Simulated assay, not measured.
Amino acid sequence: MIRRPLDPLRRLRLAALGLAALLLAAAAGCGSVGPGTPPEGAIGLLLPEVKTARYETTDRPTFVHVVEERCPGCEVYYANADQNAATQQQQAESMLARGADVLVLDAVDTSAAVSIVREARRHDVPVIAYDRFIADVDIDYYVSFDSELIGYLQGVSLVTAVEEAVRERGPRADGRPPGILLVHGSPTDPNAAALAAGVDRALEGEDIEVLAEYDTPDWSPDMATDWVESQVARFGDRIDGVYAANDGIAGGAIAAMKAAGFHPVPPVTGQDGELAAAQRIISGDQYMTVFKATTEQARTAAELAVRVLRGESPRTTATIQGVPSLLLAPRAVGVDDVERVLVDGGVHTAEEICTPYYAAACADTGLAREGS
C-alpha cells in the first residue's frame, strides 16, 4: 500500500509576513526613486530563466509592485539570466558594484550560486534565496514552497489516475503492472530532487513499474518532448502515465504522445498552474497541475527584502538546514478544481482559458466565459 503521512498538510508552513510593494519601475525593469523621495536603498532581484512563464508574468511584476508600495525610497535592480549561470554571476556582481543592499536570488545553478553568495558576503550584503535553496553557504533567508510535498501531491494524483485507468481497462493480458515515465526537472535545481523524493514516496509500495526516467536539462519542454518521443518508440502502449515535474515539461510530454497517436493521452502531472496547463486539463490532455501562489511568494520575498534592508529581523515559519525560511502552501488542481482554485482565485479568467479552441471543453466541464 502507498505510504502516506497521517496528515500531509501538516508539513505546510504558511508564510506569515504582510504584503508590501516596490519602487517606481523604470522601462528597463529597474525601480527608480521618485522626485523628492529620499533614497533608502537598493534591492537586487535575480531570476533564472524565461522558459517558465511565471518569472516574467508573475514573479517580477509582483515583486517590483510590492517594493514600490512598501518602500517608495527603495530602488530595484532586476536581471534575468536566461538559464546561464555565468551570466547570473555577472549580473549579481554588477548589482553589488552598483550598491545593492540586499540580493534576492533565484539561482540558475545552486552550486554555481555559492560564489554569488560569497561575493555578497564580501560586500556585507544579505542574500535571500528565492524559490531554490542554496546549500553549503551562509544565506540569510529562504522563501519558497515545500517541493517534496509538491512531488508527493503529484505522485499521489498519478497513482490514483493510473489505478482508475487500470480498473476501467482491466489488467494486461501479459500480467505486467502498469508502467509510467518519470520526467524530472533540471539536475542543477535542488527543487527537482525534492520533487522526485516526494514522487518516490508516493510510489512506494505501489504495483506500478517505472519504465524509465529522465532529468530534463534547463527544464526544457523541447528536450522533454524529444525524450518522451524516444520512450514512446521504445515502450508504446505500456506507458500508462507520466510524471512531469512542471507544466512546461508536461506540455512537451503531451505533444510527444499526441504526435505518436495516443488518444486519449495517458494521465500526465504538472506544476505551476500555467494558463496552457489549465486549458490542457479542461480538454482532458493533462491530468493535473500543482498551483503555487507565486504572486504570494513574490510578495513575501519583497516584503522580507524591504524589512531586511531596514535592518529588521522578520519572524519566519520554518528552518531549513539552519536557514530561517518561509514556506508557502501548494494546491493540487484537477479538472474539478480549475474554476474554484484558478478562476475564483484570480489566477486566470474563464475568458483566458475558454478561447474558441477550448470552448466546447469548457462547456462540458461547466466552465463558461462571461456572456456565453
Rank of each mutant, 00 (worst) to 15 (best):
I2H: 09
P5Y: 03
L6I: 11
D7V: 13
P8E: 09
R10N: 13
A15P: 10
A16F: 09
A21Q: 10
L23H: 15
A26P: 05
A27V: 10
G31F: 02
G36Q: 07
T37I: 14
P39M: 01
P39K: 01
G41D: 04
A42G: 02
V50N: 14
T52H: 14
T52G: 07
A53H: 13
R60T: 04
V66N: 12
A86R: 15
A92W: 06
M95T: 03
G99S: 09
G99Y: 07
V104M: 08
D106M: 07
D109C: 04
A112V: 04
I116Y: 10
I116D: 04
I116G: 09
R121V: 03
R122E: 15
D124G: 14
A129Y: 10
A135G: 11
I139G: 09
I139A: 08
D146T: 09
D146K: 08
E148L: 06
E148Y: 06
L153Q: 14
G155P: 08
G155I: 01
L158E: 00
V159G: 07
E163H: 11
V166P: 07
E168I: 04
G170R: 07
A173G: 07
D174P: 09
R176K: 12
R176W: 01
R176I: 07
P177I: 09
P178N: 03
L182A: 12
P190A: 09
A194D: 13
G198F: 01
G198V: 00
G205F: 12
L211E: 04
Y214I: 07
P217E: 11
P217Y: 03
W219H: 00
S220W: 01
A224N: 06
T225M: 13
T225P: 05
W227T: 02
A233G: 10
R234K: 04
F235Q: 05
F235C: 00
A245H: 03
A250N: 06
A253N: 11
I254C: 06
A259H: 02
G261L: 07
H263A: 15
P264N: 03
V265L: 08
V268H: 01
T269C: 00
Q286G: 01
Q286V: 04
Q286D: 05
Q286Y: 08
M288P: 05
E296D: 14
T300H: 11
T300S: 09
A302M: 11
E303Y: 10
V306K: 07
R307M: 10
A318I: 05
I320R: 10
G322T: 07
L328S: 08
V343T: 02
A350Y: 02
E351P: 08
C354I: 14
T355S: 11
Y357R: 15
Y358L: 08
T365L: 13
R369C: 15
